[in-house]
Write a protein that binds this DNA or RNA. Structure first.
Length: 322
DNA sequence: CATATTTGACCACA
DNA sequence: TGTGGTCAAATATG
């Protein structure tokens, strides 16, 4: 936060005490480091997923955290004027997600022009850090599974135009193992991040959470996964241990079992609301942020990054969109 | 009871 | 005219 303020105060790179040329070099160096960090995070993410595959909650948690780190890098790169892979605050390709195309959705009907679209393939279409509300589902011709339509929870409250389409891929298209893959099309970009925190009135009136769910406020119709039969405290403690252990192991280049992994997280996969259909909307990201939100803030990593960048979305960090 | 999801109908576009 | 996208009433859930 403090660091961010300093950056904002010197938007042209003119750091006090440095002449412009040196400032430019510094600017470039910072961009280089940020980009490098972004790439390393992607590698770490891949390694973590490999190491934690099948570890349920730990896998989801690690994924969530690393996505947030990656997202933070993206935002910082954007702020510094670099070209980030994602213009949106979120780094859309979650875990092993791959950006398939940009600028047009799959299929022949590119609905409307001028609306930015980003198509990704991912195994966790809901862990992108945003809260989505499902508003429709439709069977699409020549597809095995229905397409689900989601829009940002702040669609009304903040007029956020972001929507996304989730299409489960048929088994034969699945890449590795048994993992179910989804084609996720992000349509339009989030504007909810550019705005001030929801006014108390709105926050009290509606249950819509903070974008990343760090407030740990319980959500209506919140999906439940893992932690069956455990009270909140025990579950949190187990997840905390799992998270610490998992990330430590990943960072060390190997993985070992962590205490309580069996008892606390029988199955970390997001529950499929309806077999064969699209999973329920406000799922993984929400739960991950909710269940481990305190843990994350305790670690101070994602939290710090989040608050460092979240206060400055938009131009100059002060560009509040009405 | 409030809110989210489901689902059929409607609308717009190619 | 067929298909994809959205709306809104009905339903489900906590």
């Amino acid at each position: 936060m403090q660091t961010q303020s300093r950056l904002i105060m010197n938007p042209n790179g003119g750091v006090a005490g440095y002449e412009p040329a040196a400032a430019d070099e510094q600017h470039e160096a910072v961009l280089r480091e940020l980009t490098h960090g972004h790439q390393l995070t992607a590698h770490l993410q891949a390694e973590a997923l490999r190491a934690l595959r099948g570890q349920g909650q730990a896998e989801a948690t690690a994924t969530f955290i690393l996505q947030e780190v990656s997202r933070a890098f993206s935002v910082c790169i954007n702020i510094m004027g670099g070209s980030s892979p994602a213009a949106t605050p979120t780094t859309p390709p979650p875990d092993a997600a791959a950006v398939v195309a940009s600028g047009a959705a799959s299929g022949r009907r590119a609905r409307d022009d001028g609306v930015p679209r980003k198509v990704t393939v991912t195994s966790s279409p809901y862990s992108d850090g945003y809260q989505w509300r499902k508003y429709g589902q439709k069977r699409i011709m020549r597809t095995s599974f229905p397409r689900c339509y989601y829009r940002c929870c702040y669609h009304r409250e903040r007029s956020c135009p972001a929507t996304k389409l989730v299409q489960q891929q048929p088994p034969q298209q699945r890449g590795d193992g048994e993992q179910t893959m989804y084609t996720v099309t992000y349509v339009d970009e989030h504007t909810c991040h550019n705005m001030a925190p929801p006014e108390p009135e709105a926050a009290a009136r509606s249950s819509t959470p903070d974008p990343l769910g760090f407030s740990s406020g319980l959500q209506p119709r919140q999906q439940q996964w893992g932690g069956a039969g455990l009270d909140r405290g025990s579950k949190d403690e187990l997840e905390r241990q799992a998270l610490v252990s998992s990330l430590a192991c990943v960072l060390q280049g190997h993985h070992q079992s962590y205490p309580g992994s069996g008892a606390g997280t029988p199955d970390g996969s997001p529950s499929q609301a309806r077999a064969g259909d699209c999973p329920s909307a406000s799922g993984l990201s929400l739960d991950a942020s909710d269940d481990v939100g305190l843990d994350v803030t305790d670690y101070g990593v994602t939290d710090a990054l989040y608050f460092a960048v979240s206060s400055s979305y938009g131009p100059g960090g002060d560009g509040m969109i009405p």
